[in-house]
Design a protein around this nucleic acid. Structure first.
Lengths: 323, 323
DNA sequence: GTTCTTGACGAAATCGATTTCTTGGACTTC
DNA sequence: GAAGTCCAAGAAATCGATTTCGTCAAGAAC
């Protein structure tokens, strides 16, 4: 292992001088040349661990997401990374698999690693960031807010999105518009459903509302089963609002099995279906700006890292209906 | 910041004893109780930075991938993570966007952070891991091998996969089987194409081979354009082997525009098309075991970290044709 | 010529946990 | 009861970079 002492010895100066060269402090041109030459010859790599121990800060941001295989979260990660990189920070991605225990583990790691801050897409309402808050480590919640903690958050207007999705299906002439939403313990699932419910109640009264509502799990298989179940009703729906991209893939599969396809059967989906443009024709997509969510969260976090101590903010981004 | 000295003072013991309790060394039951109580009361979190500086090793594995939005690589990441977690390591995901410069930056970070090892899905043939090798840091290449470096690698039998994909299309009665492959500078693109070429030459002579071969960029738009281009030939193909999942999504789109769909038009694809099962019907998928690739790479890396100093190995996983 | 300023640079303290080396007391053994 | 053994636990060194403080010499000011 090459240390600054090795470099110093080789250059015939002190470790202090080497450190100064590395960090751009004032040093004579001659010393600087000697040090740079010695560092290059020895292929010296400064030890970040030592630097961090001394400096007490880390230039690393932790990003904790529930499902790395969901394109929504990878797009979000991309947004975080873009913004963080521009500010000189690296991003460490942690995948919890929707498991609160793994989430807690990663929060512990973020603490112990002295990461500059954490962006968390909470697994569910029970997510506990109190340890981060107690240690004054900046936190931003993204996608879902944390009801129980007073931290910054970035979300989208889920209710409005659900409402306009349902409205546009009614406007297109569909009359029995169902809803497949996520787990009832998840905020986004509740809000998107609430938007649908409001539109559906207006257009067709309270009558069939509960019949056409299904809570699933935000996964492909859950969407498939929910749609199959809806189609088996004696009076099946002729359209549906689906609350996320994965369930929509499953729902499409179930429709296909029943010989139905959009736009014959009306379908409005929260979030894009990447790599599926060929199968997406005729579907109404409520665009959830994943990358922008990530960018906004990173911006908030960087402000906190820079010392902003104001009260917690929530940023709400607009959803937009495509086609 | 709470340190072990604070805990020690509170418990009325020395820092040494606190450290021993934390690391499971022999300590009297009474001391252990005191220390644990004090640590809990103070919400003590051991500083990993200090621990790492002293211990000289980090329990963090770097995983460098070219495109975090490609499900192939996220599945691979999942495999790495599973294996690494089981062995007590954390995984840090780094996304290079196919940019060799960003790749070099992350390799530098891996060095400076003293990560235990690095798993690299190389951006292209020019990837330079010589700095890692020079510092004796374990490296495993995955998906693509590194011709110029003598390091462990995990790949799939790309040539055999390309061959059997083409063969199965011929066997199904198609006669003009095209190939859309990746950049000519990328090993997997060359090998998959070579497998197709071998089968195509046998079934139909050398005649039209070059007419039906297109080099694209492993991205959705590239696949769309290549397929559109092939379909505009005076004698268009009736089937195609597509060398990765993203290009296949684009190709399907182009087919759809031309009013063609599998299985009427034969399509064999390397890699799965997640979230697109509804549109995948009739497509032959050459299953690239992404997760298993990641697991195998992690296994190799962990062996190296544990001190295995044998000569470089290459592990080749079998592809499997689905349906 | 003496005092003051300025600038370059080195010695040593520091960050927090681990580890080696010691110490002191309890317990055996003959 | 003296010598030897064992064990818990503390003092201090250690990891590698940064930073404070101090030194020394060259040039400025009077």
């Amino acid at each position: 292992m090459v240390t600054i002492y090795d470099v110093a010895a080789r250059a015939g100066v002190s470790a202090t001088t080497v450190s100064r060269v590395l960090n751009g402090a004032k040093v004579s041109a001659a010393s600087e040349r000697l040090v740079r030459a010695a560092a290059a010859e020895l292929d010296f790599v400064p030890n970040r661990t030592a630097r961090r121990l001394r400096g007490q800060h880390s230039a690393v941001i932790g990003l904790i997401i529930p499902d790395i295989e969901n394109p929504f979260f990878t797009a979000l990660a991309r947004g975080v990374e873009n913004r963080a990189r521009a500010a000189g920070y690296s991003v460490v991605l942690c995948n919890t698999d929707e498991d609160p225990e793994r989430e807690a583990t990663y929060i512990g790691i973020a603490l112990a690693e002295h990461m500059a801050g954490v962006i968390l897409a909470p697994a569910d309402d029970a997510s506990d960031v109190s340890r981060l808050v107690a240690h004054h480590r900046p936190v931003v919640a993204v996608d879902r807010s944390l009801a129980r903690a007073d931290v910054d958050a970035v979300t989208v207007d889920n209710r409005a999105g659900g409402h306009s999705a349902a409205e546009s299906l009614f406007a297109a002439g569909f009359t029995r518009v169902a809803c497949i939403t996520g787990p009832s313990s998840v905020e986004t699932a509740q809000l998107r459903m609430a938007g649908w419910r409001q539109a559906a109640a207006r257009h067709s009264g309270q009558g069939y509302l509960e019949d056409l509502l299904r809570y699933a799990d935000y996964r492909v298989d859950g969407g498939r089963q929910a749609m199959a179940d809806l189609l088996s009703l004696s009076e099946p729906p002729d359209a549906a609002v689906v609350a996320n991209n994965l369930m929509a893939a499953g729902a499409l599969d179930a429709l296909h099995d029943a010989g139905l396809t959009p736009p014959g059967f009306g379908l409005a989906v929260f979030g894009d279906l990447p790599f599926a443009s060929f199968g997406r024709r005729g579907i109404r997509v409520v665009d959830v700006p994943a990358r922008e969510l990530g960018e906004a969260a990173a911006t908030l976090l960087l402000e906190r890292i820079d010392g902003d101590a104001g009260p917690a903010k929530t940023v709400v981004l607009r959803t937009r209906e495509q086609r």
